[in-house]
Amino acid sequence: MKPLCLLGRILLVIGCCLVLPAGAHDAMPPLDIGQGGKCVDDPGFMRLNHMKLLLQQRDETVRLGVRGGRYSLAGCVDCHASKVNHSVLGTDRNFCQGCHTYAAVKIDCFECHSSHPRPAMESRR
């Protein structure tokens, strides 16, 4: 077979980028959103921006001592921990792990932070 010219190769790569994620989209696993309810912001916005919001609030809380912010990681966990295993991790259906596995993004928050709801929230369930 004649090797593809440069343009051909570029088109092939672009084609793959367009087609493959669309195909993979269907494979998105259903997520266990836990208690759910009204999120601190629009879900679509959160899906796109939660990492930036969390990092921003993290730095303000840790370094400046600002408390009571809206976008808290513990807050995410309180609402979205599965009612089955009381965690946002564990299986590919759990809220954080499920989506991060799907998006192939490493999640390292829970190497230090708890993946379980705070006791006060847990008792309210």
Partner: peptide
């Protein structure tokens, strides 16, 4: 050592 399911008030993790 690795820290798993830390429940303390201040998060803590291995290597810090």
């Amino acid at each position: 050592e690795p820290v798993t399911d830390h429940s303390g008030a201040t998060p803590r993790g291995q290597g810090t």
